[in-house]
Structures are given as C-alpha cells and as structure tokens.
Design a binder for these strands. Structure first.
Length: 195
DNA sequence: GCCTATCGTGATG
DNA sequence: CATCACGATAGGC
C-alpha cells in the first residue's frame, strides 16, 4: 500500500511576509495520486538559521505540465527550481509510519490576518473530524462571514497539510478544488481507520 | 429551486 | 482611495 502522511502529524504554520524568492519543487507518488510539492526556506524564530518549509502541495489531477502552470500562475514572482533530492528529503519526513510524537512539519503560508486565522482553525481539526463553513465562522467569532471563510479556505496552497477537505457545506454538497470525488475519498479514508 | 444577506479579496480606474 | 463583481454558504420562501 502506498504511503500516506501521518495521521496525527503536527503542522507548524509559519507566516511569510512576502512571496518566496525561490520554490524548490518536485513530484511525489502518494496513495491518492501524484502530487507536486514545493518548499522554500524561512528563518527560525529562535536563531537566525534557515529551515525548509513546505509552501505548495497540489494534487496533479491531469498532468505535471498543467499543475506546474497552476503553481507558476499562483507564484508569478518566485523562481521555480526542480529539486528532486530536497523534496524527497521532506517527503521522507512526512510520509511513512505514524509520526505522532515526532517534530512538527513546517508549513510556510502567505495571506491576510483573516486568511491566517481561517487556516489556523483548519489545522486544529483532527483526522476524521469535519466542520461546516458556518461552524468555522462561528469558531472564529465571525458568524456572518461565512462566504468570506469559504473564500479563505479555497485559497489554501497546501492541501492535506492544512486539511481544507474537512470543511463541508451544511447540506452535503461539499466542493473541492481538486474535485468533490477526491474530497469524499479523503474523508472516507480518514474515517475508516485504515492508516 | 429561486432570492437574498453577507464579507473578505482582487481587479479596475 | 472608491467601487464592483465574485464565491468551496446558508436560510427563507
């Protein structure tokens, strides 16, 4: 069985102040299909050393070229550098046996305060747990900003790691950037205890 | 099903 | 700046 990310992997969200200068990327084969991962380097908060953080994680739903174009379009000012070795290193940390007690996975994000708070709320959702857009809005203390929350959810660059698939609409309609079918698969898998 | 309230974004001038 | 159109929504009818 193809490896999948650890169920209770801890995600450390690191806000960026500007788009990454360079994004090192490569493709991965996962249980739910091919993905493209991109990383950048961000400064540690404690010392001045840099660390590698994931800033892009897209499903490749058609082909690599199309997904590359999506990344290119989202990050027009960043240099995209193919770097299989670096991505493999990160992937080895992310996938495999349950990493429940291991170190947090650094994820670099760029967005408004509102978007950051939505994404932080998403990361708090546990595997197998779902939440509606309106529940999320209420949790943020912005009960009427439902559409705004949905917009922010949709801007998530890092699928799976920021688990936007766990947000569902109140009548089960539930859209997803990479297709409602994949979203259902992910949810079913997370509820099935088949890690 | 259609209609409308709602609100952060991004585009546009 | 001001304005406008646009959603991965929800609720009323």
């Amino acid at each position: 069985m193809m490896m999948w990310f650890a169920r209770n992997a801890r995600i450390q969200l690191i806000p960026m102040e500007s788009p990454p200068k360079t994004i090192s990327y490569s493709c991965l084969t996962t249980k739910f299909g091919q993905m493209m991962m991109g990383t950048t380097t961000v400064p540690f908060t404690v010392d001045s050393k840099d660390q590698v953080a994931i800033c892009v994680l897209y499903f490749i739903d058609e082909n690599v070229a199309k997904t590359y174009d999506e990344v290119r379009k989202r990050w027009p000012k960043s240099d995209l550098c193919k770097d299989d070795a670096r991505i493999q290193l990160v992937a080895d940390k992310l996938f495999g046996p349950d990493k429940e007690n291991s170190e947090a996975i650094p994820v670099a994000i760029l967005g408004s305060e509102f978007q950051l708070s939505v994404w932080r709320a998403l990361v708090d959702l546990k595997s197998g747990e779902t939440c509606t857009y309106s529940q999320l809005a209420e949790r943020m203390g912005r009960p009427t900003a439902i559409r705004a929350v949905a917009n922010a959810v949709a801007k998530n660059e890092v699928s799976i790691l920021i688990p936007c698939h766990r947000i569902v609409s109140q009548n089960g309609a539930s859209k997803y950037h990479w297709g409602a079918a994949l979203k259902q698969q992910l949810l079913k898998f997370e509820k099935s205890d088949s890690y």
